[in-house]
Design a protein around this nucleic acid. Sequence first.
DNA 1: TGGACTAGAACGACCGGTCGGTTTTTGCAA
DNA 2: TTGCAAAAACCGACCGGTCGTTCTAGTCCA
Lengths: 198, 198
Amino acid sequence: MKKGEATQKSILEEALRQASTVGLEGLTLGVLAERLELSKSGLFAHFKSKEALQLAVLQAAVEHFIAEVVAPALSQPRGEPRVRALCEGWLRWEKSRRMPGGCIFVNAAVEFDDRPGPVRDALVQSQEDWLDTIARAAQIAVAEGHFRPDLDTEQFANDLQGIFLNHHHASRLRRDARAELITRRSVESLLTRSRRTH
Amino acid sequence: MKKGEATQKSILEEALRQASTVGLEGLTLGVLAERLELSKSGLFAHFKSKEALQLAVLQAAVEHFIAEVVAPALSQPRGEPRVRALCEGWLRWEKSRRMPGGCIFVNAAVEFDDRPGPVRDALVQSQEDWLDTIARAAQIAVAEGHFRPDLDTEQFANDLQGIFLNHHHASRLRRDARAELITRRSVESLLTRSRRTH
DNA sequence: TGGACTAGAACGACCGGTCGGTTTTTGCAA
DNA sequence: TTGCAAAAACCGACCGGTCGTTCTAGTCCA
C-alpha cells in the first residue's frame, strides 16, 4: 500500500503541470500517461473518472497553496506584515516551477465559470476561502492599528485579487516585462491608502 | 455574394455566443452547425480552418467592442467623463446578451496565454490596444486638469484592468450578487485618488 | 449557364473509458 | 531471512463516440 501512493503523487504533480498550461479540461489522459511513462489504463486505474482526477488535482493545488502561501504568512507577525507576506506568497506562487502555465486557480476559474459541476463547486469554495483569508488578515491589521478602522476589508480583498489577476494577465498573456514592477506598485498603493490617516 | 455574407455573419454571432461560454478552443464545428441548422461541411466551407474561424470571431468581437465601448466613450467630453464612459461601457459589455459566458477577451486571454499562434498574437494586440485606449483617455484627463499631473497613466490602465478582471471573477465564478457594487466602489476609489490633490 | 453555396458521406486521429490478463509489491508464516 | 500466496498495480488491446478536415455531388441564384 505504498507504491500506489507514490505514483499517484507523481501523477498529480505532472497533471498539475499540464493543467496549468492547457487547463483542467484540456488535460488529457493519453499524453499524461505518456509523459509519466505509464499506460493510459494503468494511470486511469488510480482515478475512477477524469472528473475525479480534476478534483484531485484541484485539491492537491489547494494543499500546496496553503503550505506555500497561507501558512508562511500565518507565521509572520499579525497585521500589515502578514498581509504583505500573503502578497509576496502569491507572487512566488504564480511563478512556481510546479505550474509552468501560471496559477491553476486563475486558469480553472475562467474555464469553469460556466461549467456547472463538482469541479466548479470546489473551485468556488477555494476562491471564497482565499478571499476570506485576505479579508481576515486585513481585519487583523485593522485591529493592530496598522490599517484604518473604517477599512472595508471585503473591498480590500477584492482590490488585491484584482491586482493579482491583472498580474497574471500582464505577465502571462502580454508577457509584459514590467508586470511585477507594476503589480508591486499597485500593492504598495493599496497598502498606503489602507493605513491610518495621520 | 450576399447570401454568403449573411450566413457568415450569423455564424460569427453564434460562434461568439458559444465561445464566450466554452472558450475559443472549446468551440466546436459540430454543435455550432447544429445550432445554426447547417451541415458541418457547409459551415466549414466559409472558413478554411477552425483557426481561421477563431480569428474571425476575435476580429468580430473587436469590432463590436469598438462600436459599443470605445466609440461611445469617444463621443463623451474629453477628460474624466470619457474615462467614466469607458468604465460604464466595459461593464455594459461584460453583461452583453451577445456573450452569455462573459467577456470573450478575458476567456480567450487565459485560454491562449500559453498557446502560441496567430490567435494569441491577435489577442495580445487587442489587449494592448485596450490598455492603450485607457491610458490615453487618462492622459487627456491629466491634460484637462481633471487628473493630477504626475499620474502614471500606464499604472492607471493596469489598475483599472485589474478591477475589471476581478469583476469577471466575482460575477462569473463566484456569482457574487454584490460584484457590481464592489466594482463600482473600486472604480470610484481609483478615480478619486487620480484627481488633483487640492 | 456559371459560380457561389450547401449537403452528405467518409477519413484518420484522438478522446474517455472498459476489460482480461500479467507483473509487481506486500504481509505474513516458517 | 526466506518462501509464498493474496492483493495491488499495471499493461495492451479495444470500444463507441467526437473531433477537424476533405471530397464529391447537387442546389440555388444572378
